[in-house]
Design a protein around this nucleic acid. Structure first.
Lengths: 158, 158
DNA sequence: CAGTATCCCAAGCGATACTG
DNA sequence: CAGTATCGCTTGGGATACTG
């Protein structure tokens, strides 16, 4: 059975992209990971318009990757800020993978502005492919195998 | 120095997204990884329009992540198909990270249609965070530290 | 400060027709 | 088969003004 025989939309990559697919979502996530949580700080740092940021955050809340937290500082009006949900935090590997690729293939002359550090030891953080049997896995040793229950395409023609 | 003080656009994630940011690019990469290389096969499997696929592929070639390979089968007219460049192949971790997240958080009742296998041993392939000192790294132990040469924002106001 | 509402524009997409 | 050209539409985005 070939890969083409499986419905494109049922693929988990396609489904993940439905949550991340537009121009700003990933950058918002990045800033949330980096400790920017207030509306106007995001606005300022991202350079996005108020309107779009508002719509994007609402969509991300709806989608379960961001939550809105109301709070009140003593004496001042109630505020809210935005934090990653557990599902949102699990997108960290996606961001790290993007970061590494960008570092390697899209760096400026100045080099990347930041570096991912292992807190404590100070080593540089990277991603490694491993398998459930404990092996290290090389890029070419990865195969995408059909599973039981996979949804086949309904052929339109022929 | 806070993260906000760094220019959003100089971040490697932002730069990587410039290559991957639109709706179809990642899905095309996915199909190329899975052995779909001909124009009409991609067309058929992705459900994208001819026009958009043509423009996307051209942009990806321009961008250095896909290459076009002309070939000729005996007796028939010359053809070409599309393959990942080395830079394109290095996007594999991004796709794998998306796949895992989709598996975990966006699966259908049927479960994911495919499974990433370590060729040979048959184990399931996963991503792990490691550091250059050889430690395993937990999610919360990752810090994004400024580097020398990082580009600061030119403050517009105040 | 933290948004929502309104309005307009441009890019991206799809359908279709056409070419080598 | 493998595209390019044309067209019209939809959607996402920006600017601005308004509200609690």
């Amino acid at each position: 059975m070939r890969w083409q025989d499986y419905e494109s939309d049922s693929c988990s990559i396609a489904r993940a992209l439905a949550s991340l697919g537009d121009r700003w979502t990933v950058l918002i996530l990045r800033d949330l990971f980096n400790g920017v949580h207030r509306f106007d700080e995001l606005l300022d740092h991202l350079g996005v318009s108020r309107d779009v940021l508002s719509r994007r955050l609402a969509a991300m809340v709806e989608d379960g990757i961001v939550e809105r937290r109301p709070y009140r500082e003593d004496g001042s009006r109630p505020r809210s800020d935005y934090h990653l949900t557990p599902a949102g935090r699990e997108l960290q590997p996606v961001l790290i993978a993007l970061l590494h690729w960008g570092d390697r293939h899209r760096a400026t002359e100045d080099g990347p502005p930041t570096r991912l550090e292992h807190v404590g030891c100070g080593g540089e953080v990277g991603l490694r492919l491993t398998c459930s049997e404990g092996h290290d896995v090389a890029r070419r040793e990865v195969a995408n195998r059909p599973q039981a229950g996979a949804r086949l395409r309904t052929r339109v023609s022929a």
